[in-house]
């Protein structure tokens, strides 16, 4: 989390179409084209992009593959476990074999690869939904606070301060006692879906202030520009000014904060699983797979290692992608 805030704060408050055209590029390229070109030249960012793109595709494929039975994250394979050793997989490396490429889960014998694969789907869905909630809230409130100023700005500012002063981990943990049940009753869904919805809502509700602060800062400079005056003079409605005039100038910081928030939520999901909050098995998430592997750390190290490694890869690649996008959009930044 700390890393992420520092990155957000170091964003330069330059509007999108600043003096980028003065760089030595050929005349006639739009700023976004220039950014894209800069991004393509950065090898590390391209690698990160490819990695992110590939597991996003894998995550999208997983539900289909589970449905047609290509991967089966739920089937028990007790015959592959050594009952004498307390349910540790037979064979070396946690029961790696042709049909179970990453071995099987101790205790149940479920296929590790299948569970992790399907787990990515759930983990990314939660992270994506939570990021959407926090981004939408943050952007809307940030624009309103920045543009309206005065009492509205002050009120939103106080609410931001208030939200940020809450001890986050404790609240994420403690609120589950009240809200999971409430969600379950209100929406009439099963426990696991309620757990998931709870996670998304709470992460979003505690995540929006950072986005709102960032956006507000940018809007403060945008609102002084002539095109806003023009829009006001032409009698544009508030909503039009917010979403048609201001918002298009904000997509750069929004995109960057989005790519940097996603990985933070993937880690948070894992951390919450460790604290017994969130989606529970048999539905796999990276967090609950990892949580389930703790007791086998010494007896089946690979089973303990793989889920953590996958989380690390997701976090690193998303962060590098976010850095790359920021560098590409902001010619002044320099790694």
């Amino acid at each position: 989390m700390t890393l992420q805030t520092s990155q957000l704060e170091s964003l330069e408050p330059t509007p999108v179409e600043s003096d980028e055209s003065s760089t030595k590029a050929v005349a006639g390229l739009s700023p976004s084209r220039l950014a894209l070109r800069r991004f393509r030249r950065d090898r590390l960012s391209m690698v990160a992009f490819v990695v992110v793109a590939s597991y996003v595709v894998l995550a999208l494929l997983a539900p289909i593959l589970v449905k047609i039975g290509f991967i089966d994250p739920f089937k028990f394979h007790q015959n592959l476990l050594d009952a004498n050793l307390g349910g540790i997989p037979k064979g070396k490396f946690g029961g790696v074999s042709g049909s179970h490429l990453l071995g099987v889960e101790p205790g149940t014998g479920r296929d590790v690869l299948a569970r992790m694969w399907y787990g990515v789907t759930f983990s990314l869905t939660i992270a994506l939904a939570a990021t959407l909630v926090s981004s939408v809230l943050g952007v809307v409130l940030g624009i309103i606070a920045g543009f309206r100023g005065g009492l509205i700005d002050a009120t939103i500012g106080r609410v931001i301060d208030l939200t940020l002063s809450f001890p986050q981990t404790l609240m994420l943990l403690a609120l589950s006692t009240v809200f999971v049940l409430a969600i379950q009753n209100a929406l009439n869904v099963n426990v696991n879906l309620a757990n998931g919805i709870y996670e998304v809502l709470v992460l979003g509700l505690f995540g929006w202030p950072t986005v709102a602060r960032l956006i507000r800062g940018q809007v403060l400079s945008i609102r002084e520009r002539e095109f806003i005056d023009a829009a006001v003079l032409l009698g544009a409605s508030q909503r039009r000014i917010y979403f048609k005039e201001i918002l298009p100038n904000l997509w750069a910081p929004i995109l960057v904060s989005f790519t940097l928030t996603m990985p933070a939520y993937v880690s948070t999901e894992a951390a919450l699983s460790f604290l017994n909050v969130g989606i529970k098995p048999p539905t796999p998430t990276l967090g609950n797979i990892l949580d389930g592997s703790i007791n086998y750390a010494q007896s089946d190290f690979l089973f303990f290692f793989f889920p953590a490694l996958l989380i690390a890869i997701i976090v690193v690649s998303f962060n590098l992608l976010g850095d790359g996008i920021r560098d590409a959009l902001d010619p002044k930044s320099d790694r």
Binding site: L3, P263, S267, A270, A271, F274, L290, I294, A297, Q298, A308, I311, A312, I313, V315, V316, N319
Partner: peptide, 23 residues
């Protein structure tokens, strides 16, 4: 430093505990 940041806190802690301290 990015790698240490990327692995979940509890995983690093448990790794230390189970291997550096216990094993």
């Amino acid at each position: 430093s990015l790698i240490f940041y990327a692995f979940p806190t509890f995983w690093i802690g448990l790794f230390f505990l189970k291997f550096f301290a216990i094993q």
